[in-house]
Amino acid sequence: MGRILVRKYTPKSEEQIMQAKDIMTKGVVCLNVKDTIFDAAELMLGANVSAVPVINDKDELVGILSEADLVRRVEIGTSPRKSWLSRLLESEAGAAHDFVATHARHISDVMTKDVVTAKEEATLAELVDLIERHSIKRIPVVRAGKLVGVVSRADLLEALLSREPEGPVVRPTDKELRQTVIEALAHRPWVSKWPTNVFANDGVVHLWGFVQDDEVRNAYRVAAENVPGVRRVKNHLRSIPAAVTMGV
């Protein structure tokens, strides 16, 4: 049975690319591959976690166990009920697999063995790609096959929060702010083919003109909101009617 997890977060400056080692949870709660499903349930409830990495006696990562692996159990009457047709068409291998999943006592029989992992040097972009591609909630981080941490979606939210921009020390003049917003909008792939204009007054940016659609209209607003010194954006941009876009 493992240790209580301890969150440790080390923010980086915006100039540096954040990696898994910068945001991962260290001191992760672990299960031993020899533990039972009852050990696992007790540990998950005590540590308030929904999934636990599984290691062997050499501290090597060999699997991961989640709540989903334990909810279909014969002990609590939740094993799947199949229709007579499903049972008729089911193969012997499939039936055997389902029996093990609902009756096995050892976590080695029910855990996921093919675990998606990442190295400490993996960037946050790479981690998010893995999470989305495999539809998972967390990624164990390994060094030479041994578990050194876990990155969850909550860790990514903490990283996002650490990058919340602070207000500028010196507020730019309206002229400087207008020019900065114009530069932030220039050369975007979605930039409008029709005339647009930017005005700034006491930190409030006004956007005027015509754009292709509401998606582009929103993109203009978001780009302006990300410019340091902008207190608020008033979006007066208008979408071009479909008849005009088709040259009618």
Rank of each mutant, 00 (worst) to 15 (best):
R105C: 07
D109Q: 12
A118S: 10
E126P: 05
I107M: 09
T102F: 05
R138K: 09
V128W: 02
V141P: 09
H103K: 14
T123S: 14
K113T: 15
T117R: 01
A101N: 04
V100C: 11
V100W: 02
H106F: 14
I136S: 07
V110K: 10
V115R: 04
G94Y: 03
K137C: 05
T123F: 03
S108W: 13
V116R: 06
V116N: 09
E126H: 09
T123E: 01
A101P: 07
V100E: 13
T123A: 08
A96E: 15
A104S: 11
V141A: 03
G94S: 04
G94V: 07
T117I: 09
K113A: 08
A101S: 14
V115S: 04
A96P: 06
I136Y: 07
T102V: 14
R133W: 03
T102S: 09
E126S: 10
E132C: 04
E132F: 05
A122M: 06
A122T: 07
I131P: 04
P140R: 01
L127N: 00
E126F: 05
D114A: 12
I136H: 07
V100M: 14
H97M: 11
V128N: 12
D129G: 00
R133H: 11
V100T: 14
L130W: 02
D109R: 09
E132V: 14
F99A: 14
H103T: 14
H97W: 11
D109P: 04
K137G: 01
V141N: 03
P140W: 10
L130T: 00
I107V: 15
A125N: 13
V100R: 12
A118W: 06
A118I: 03
A118Y: 01
A104N: 01
M111P: 05
L130F: 00
F99N: 12
F99I: 01
V110D: 03
R105Y: 08
S135M: 03
H103F: 07
I139M: 05
R138P: 00
H134N: 06
E132K: 13
K113Q: 13
S108H: 13
E120S: 07
K119T: 09
V100P: 08
V116F: 02
K119Q: 05
D114I: 10
T102A: 13
D109S: 14
E126N: 00
H103A: 11
D98W: 09
V116I: 11
I139F: 05
L130Y: 02
I107Q: 10
D129H: 05
D109E: 12
D129C: 02
A101R: 14
V141F: 00
P140K: 03
H106E: 12
T102M: 07
I139H: 11
S108K: 13
R133G: 06
M111N: 04
D129S: 01
